[in-house]
Amino acid sequence: MKGLSVFNKLVFFINTLVALALLLAYLLPYIPPVTFPFLAVLSLGLPILFLLNFIFVIYWLLGLKRQVFLSLLIILIGFNHLLSLYKIRSLEAEVDPQKAISLMTFNVRQFNVYDWLPQPNLKARIGEFIAQEDPDILLFQEYNHQEAPDLSQYAYSYLPVLKGKASQAIYSKYPIINRASADFKNTGNNALYADLVIKEDTIRVFNIHLESLKINPSVKELQKENREQLITRVGRSFRKQQQQTEQILALVNQSHYPSIVAGDLNNSAFSYVYRRLSENFNDAFKMAGEGFGKTFVFDFIPLRIDVILTSPAFKIIDFKNYSEQLSDHYPIKSTFYLDNSVANK
């Protein structure tokens, strides 16, 4: 601290707090939310903490001050976290088109039935978008049975109506031989799964919709919220998400089939629930994505809260983020194939 002006001493003090906050955020994926639910909120702000520390690095670097090493070291320690935030495009793998399987997941917010987005004919536009992209497997969260567009191109579907639950849907071009609901308790959220027969193989697909954080994505609205009440509510949601995640993993472990877990986490890729779900899976975005991978409409944070996770038996060929704003979520799609040499081990 010697040789620093009073102003720079203040800047370094703030820098230290921000650096420690980022370091703590690195640890949160390993701390169950039931332990310190209020701390889990930090994981949502990790992209901002990365940016602030980067700004401090530039500030001290321009001043040729050794204080640059504090934030630089913290950023380097968590370099792997950057792979969850931003991905440089990798080369697409070549595969026999007959083996390729594509899956899209999309939280459609009930097809805009309550006019959240001031856009006309949104249901028809979603239908046109699906027809154009033509995924083999299609997962919807916040599905509305009455408002759904024509999806007759899919010969098979699982569209349960569950009392007290926000609806979800699984559409497939492959036969469905088994289906069920995870039936999360004391919540309107849920997860579905279906076993699909693809030629001589069977796979299990999970469509998940974890507990909502009930946060208005507008910064202006967030500023109006009581901070203590906000943190308490989000912490409560994180605890429920942890319970729901363990329930999903139990169902995954019960299955003898290669599995895909996809849908809306309602949490970031820096969270405990993401780490638990992805531990034995490949994240399609990390394998073949590009850019920030943003999937949720937020004022300034590139949140990636929708995922496609595949067991190692699947080889990822491609991953695509879409920029069409047809909901408060952006759809994502991945293409992959089943490697029987791995699946049969």
Score class of each variant (00 low, 15 high):
1 M>L: 13
1 M>K: 14
14 I>V: 11
17 L>M: 10
23 L>R: 03
26 Y>Q: 07
27 L>H: 08
27 L>D: 02
28 L>M: 09
29 P>R: 07
31 I>G: 01
32 P>H: 05
35 T>M: 11
37 P>A: 11
50 F>G: 08
51 L>I: 04
56 F>R: 01
58 I>A: 13
67 Q>E: 12
68 V>Y: 04
74 I>H: 04
74 I>K: 02
82 L>M: 11
86 Y>T: 10
88 I>R: 08
93 A>P: 03
101 I>V: 15
107 N>M: 01
113 V>S: 12
113 V>D: 05
119 Q>I: 13
121 N>A: 00
123 K>P: 09
131 A>N: 05
132 Q>Y: 08
135 P>G: 08
144 N>K: 10
145 H>I: 02
150 D>T: 06
151 L>C: 10
153 Q>D: 14
154 Y>R: 10
163 K>V: 08
166 A>E: 14
166 A>Q: 14
168 Q>R: 11
177 I>Q: 14
177 I>M: 09
184 F>C: 00
184 F>S: 00
186 N>Y: 13
191 A>R: 02
197 V>K: 06
203 I>Q: 05
203 I>K: 07
216 N>W: 06
218 S>R: 15
221 E>W: 12
226 N>S: 14
226 N>K: 14
229 Q>Y: 04
230 L>F: 15
238 F>W: 10
245 T>D: 12
254 Q>H: 03
259 S>P: 01
262 A>E: 02
266 N>I: 06
267 N>V: 01
271 S>L: 05
275 R>A: 01
276 R>H: 10
278 S>T: 04
280 N>P: 03
282 N>M: 02
284 A>E: 07
286 K>Q: 15
303 L>M: 11
308 I>D: 04
315 K>P: 07
315 K>M: 02
315 K>G: 09
316 I>H: 03
317 I>E: 06
319 F>C: 02
322 Y>G: 08
327 S>A: 10
328 D>W: 02
329 H>L: 09
335 T>N: 01
342 V>W: 06
344 N>E: 12
